[in-house]
Computed example of a mutant assay.
Amino acid sequence: MGSGTGKAGREKTTEIMIAGGGGDFERTLADAVIHEGMMATIAHGPRAHALIRRRAFDLVILDAVVGAEGAFHLCRLIRAGSTVPVIAVVADGREDVVLAAFESGADDCVSRPFGIREMLARIRSVLRRASYSRASHSLPKPFRFNGWRLDPWQRTLSRPDGTVVDVTAAEFDLLVAFCRNPGRILSREELLASTHAGLAGPIERSIDVHISRLRQKIEDNPRSPTLIKTVRMGGYIFAAIVE
């Protein structure tokens, strides 16, 4: 892992994570980012994901040139629990590869080879869009489904009659992940990535226990759930219409 800072004196320096399989490209890009007055951190695989969960990066650059499938999987894990902007770097401009990058949750996709100036321009463009989005959505809007109201800002869950339901931090995080991804199958690993409560024990057992408890609170019939459905060999899917 490498990191550094450029121009001093800024109150908040932009922090960028460069995640990939290793190589000269990542170091070259990190040097260019640092030269522009930003901070760059290089990490690979699980370590990259762990750092992204712990630290508030402003942008993630995924090097999908080597091991595209693993990079896109990491992107899905990131997107399950974060709205941090992601730029995917792919080996070529084939439509199927570019589509796979966007479908995994990338905000932009650039094909190698490319010039450093082009990459820096894309970084600035994505950061601007993210800044505009934060300015217009400074407070996260509540989710509504089947009469229920989930407020990410207040971290409250209310029944259709307005009464507040007690939920644990993990249960709340899981429900937010479902509301952000309605109709999409979420693996247990993706759901684990969305929680900030530090679930203990094996992934399958931890997630299944929390899902079971969550069903007890929001399903009319927890034994025959209609909102959080189990997908065999896949994970779970949130079947409600989310507004």
Rank of each mutant, 00 (worst) to 15 (best):
R27A: 15
V86T: 04
A106L: 10
L199T: 03
R124F: 09
L77F: 02
G20I: 01
G9L: 05
V84A: 07
W148Q: 03
D58Y: 04
R27I: 11
D31C: 07
V176Y: 02
E171D: 04
F114R: 00
N221C: 03
A177H: 03
G162F: 04
A193S: 13
R117V: 10
D108Q: 08
T14C: 10
I87F: 05
F143Y: 15
T163V: 15
Q154G: 12
V66G: 02
L174V: 08
F178C: 10
R10D: 08
L29I: 14
T230V: 11
V60W: 05
T5A: 14
L150R: 02
I42R: 01
R79H: 05
F114S: 08
Y236R: 01
T5Q: 12
V164E: 15
M17L: 15
A64K: 01
E95I: 14
W153H: 15
T168S: 15
L192I: 01
E15T: 12
R134P: 00
R223Q: 13
A121N: 05
I228H: 06
V167M: 07
D31S: 13
L139A: 15
S194A: 15
E190V: 05
M17N: 02
I116G: 02
S194Y: 00
A71P: 00
R55W: 11
L99F: 12
E204H: 13
S138Q: 13
V65R: 14
I237A: 12
C75T: 12
D96I: 13
C75E: 04
K12W: 08
V86Y: 06
V176H: 07
G23W: 09
L99M: 10
P225Y: 02
T168A: 08
E219T: 07
G2M: 15
L191P: 00
G21P: 10
D92K: 00
V164G: 04
V167W: 06
A91Q: 09
G45P: 02
V66C: 08
R129A: 11
L174K: 05
T41E: 10
G201W: 05
A130T: 03
A8D: 12
Q216M: 15
L77D: 09
T41N: 09
A197H: 02
L120K: 03
A56S: 12
L29M: 12
I241F: 07
T13D: 10
E36A: 14
G93I: 08
I18E: 05
E95L: 14
V126P: 00
R79Q: 07
D96G: 06
I16F: 06
R76K: 12
P140K: 05
P46Q: 14
V164P: 03
S212A: 15
N146C: 13
A32L: 08
E190H: 00
F178G: 08
F178Y: 09
W153P: 00
W148V: 03
R79M: 09
I211P: 02
S158C: 14
V33D: 10
G9K: 00
V90H: 00
P152R: 03
D63V: 03
D208A: 15
D92C: 09
D166R: 12
G22C: 08
S104G: 04
T13M: 14
R213N: 13
S136H: 01
L139N: 12
G201R: 04
A48G: 12
